[in-house]
Nucleic acid binder design. Structure first.
Lengths: 128, 128
DNA sequence: CTAAGTGTACTATTTTAAATAATACAAAGA
DNA sequence: TCTTTGTATTATTTAAAATAGTACACTTAG
């Protein structure tokens, strides 16, 4: 599935959110697929069910997954991308932060582009 | 100088660290320049001096700035970039996170590259 | 030499978010 | 009916961040 680092500074529920999204992009999970239940995933990863529930709720809010009472949660059949203005600024900030760090590590533009290329290949190439 | 958002989820002291680094890259602050004193910056931004001190200490640990007792803190004359393996993984993770988000916003590779181009221009073009 | 300004150290307290814990409920399905 | 589902609720614990106040050693300007 994906790896959770309990000692990371980024909250566990966010790590779950990121992991699920990444797996969907990679094609490891597909639209319509059933997600493990809250309790199931919690047991698998030795987490508290409430933490998993929180992640699922946020994922549903973002329309990444759909939930049906008593049935379970599934990967959304269609995800409508929308470029929210606020989210765009936020995204640019994340990139800026990463680029500033890169520069301080002596990594130039060319190397950054290569790194991004690699990451995208990892995401796209992983289909199935 | 730079903007601090007290309501952001990223700690204030980290925002200071990022802001200083960004300003140095932009050339708004140059090697050898004197930084505002801990108490001075704290007053300017209505922050607690301890918070500013924490940021300065981390910046010094990273050799971005140098401090001299009783004299003040200054932007380091030379910064030796080193590509730490662990930091590289960390950096790649930040980029991955951003790219996953971008994809979910319907932003493709080409647009990402353009965005990065813009950010780099912002950093380099701002010299002086 | 003195006074003010520097970074630093220390302890204590408050604030906030995250995570855990333990139940309970309504809906769906076997 | 019984189990599994997501959800809701309340309480507690944990951990990090931020604030507050004080003190110390050093440097420099006067």
């Amino acid at each position: 599935m994906f790896i959770i680092d309990p000692r990371s500074s980024t909250p566990i529920y966010q790590q779950i959110i990121e992991g699920v999204k990444e797996n969907i992009l990679k094609g490891l999970i597909e639209p319509g697929d059933k997600m493990p239940s809250v309790r199931e995933l919690a047991k698998m990863m030795t987490l508290n069910p409430n933490t998993v529930a929180k992640a699922y709720q946020e994922l549903e809010r973002q329309k990444v997954i759909e939930t049906f009472r008593g049935r379970g949660t599934f990967v959304s059949m269609e995800y409508e991308a929308k470029k929210d203005g606020e989210k765009m600024t936020e995204l640019k900030d994340i990139f800026k932060k990463a680029i500033v760090e890169a520069y301080y590590m002596g990594i130039d533009k060319k190397e950054i582009m290569i790194m991004i290329d690699e990451i995208i290949k990892e995401l796209e190439g992983g289909s199935k």
